[in-house]
Simulated assay, not measured.
Amino acid sequence: MSTLALPSLKNCFVSQVRVTGDHRLAVKFQDALIAELHMGEWISRQHGSMIEPLKSPAFFADVSIQRGVLTWPNGYDIDPFSIRHWAEHGMD
């Protein structure tokens, strides 16, 4: 049986974020890994009152970092382990 190597939580925290286009973010993690995430397709498949506003590119662009976690003005945030996984392996 193989085990999945998970990054440490510290390495999952985002230190910088920059909007690079509609539903696209460049993120830098605390261990200096930099990745660009194309999140439009993922967001379009999600449902619920918290994520619906993110479907607007203008609202999506209002992302911030709160304690290392990508967060939007309505309080929606994305698990840092997911962000790190997407950065390393893609969003498929």
Rank of each mutant, 00 (worst) to 15 (best):
M1L: 09
M1Q: 05
S2L: 15
S2K: 14
T3C: 08
L4T: 13
L4D: 09
A5F: 12
A5Y: 07
P7R: 04
S8F: 13
L9A: 11
L9C: 05
L9W: 10
K10N: 11
K10R: 13
N11M: 10
N11Q: 11
C12N: 09
F13W: 11
F13P: 11
F13V: 08
F13A: 08
V14W: 06
S15Q: 13
S15P: 14
S15R: 15
Q16P: 10
Q16Y: 12
Q16G: 09
R18I: 08
V19R: 03
V19W: 02
V19E: 02
T20Q: 06
G21F: 14
G21E: 02
D22K: 10
D22A: 11
H23Q: 06
H23I: 06
R24Q: 13
R24K: 13
R24H: 12
L25N: 01
L25C: 01
V27W: 04
K28H: 07
K28V: 14
K28D: 00
F29R: 03
F29L: 04
F29K: 04
F29I: 04
Q30T: 11
Q30R: 13
Q30N: 14
D31Q: 03
D31C: 07
D31V: 02
L33A: 05
L33T: 10
L33V: 14
I34M: 10
A35Q: 02
E36T: 13
L37M: 10
L37W: 05
H38Q: 00
M39Y: 02
G40E: 03
G40M: 07
E41I: 12
E41F: 14
E41L: 14
E41P: 15
W42Y: 13
I43H: 01
S44K: 11
S44I: 05
R45N: 15
R45P: 15
Q46Y: 10
H47F: 14
H47T: 12
G48P: 06
G48T: 01
G48F: 03
S49F: 10
S49G: 08
S49P: 15
S49W: 05
M50N: 07
M50T: 09
M50G: 05
I51S: 00
P53Q: 00
L54W: 04
L54M: 09
L54H: 01
K55R: 14
K55A: 02
S56H: 07
P57M: 00
A58Y: 12
A58P: 14
A58M: 14
F59N: 03
F59T: 05
F60P: 09
F60H: 08
D62R: 11
V63F: 01
S64Y: 00
S64T: 12
S64A: 04
I65L: 04
Q66Y: 08
R67I: 12
G68P: 14
G68L: 06
V69C: 12
W72S: 04
W72D: 01
P73R: 00
P73M: 00
N74V: 01
N74M: 02
N74F: 00
Y76F: 15
D77L: 08
D77F: 13
D77G: 11
D77K: 10
I78D: 00
D79C: 15
D79H: 15
P80C: 07
F81C: 02
S82N: 10
I83V: 15
I83L: 11
I83S: 01
H85Q: 12
W86H: 08
A87P: 09
E88K: 15
H89I: 06
G90L: 10
M91I: 10
M91H: 04
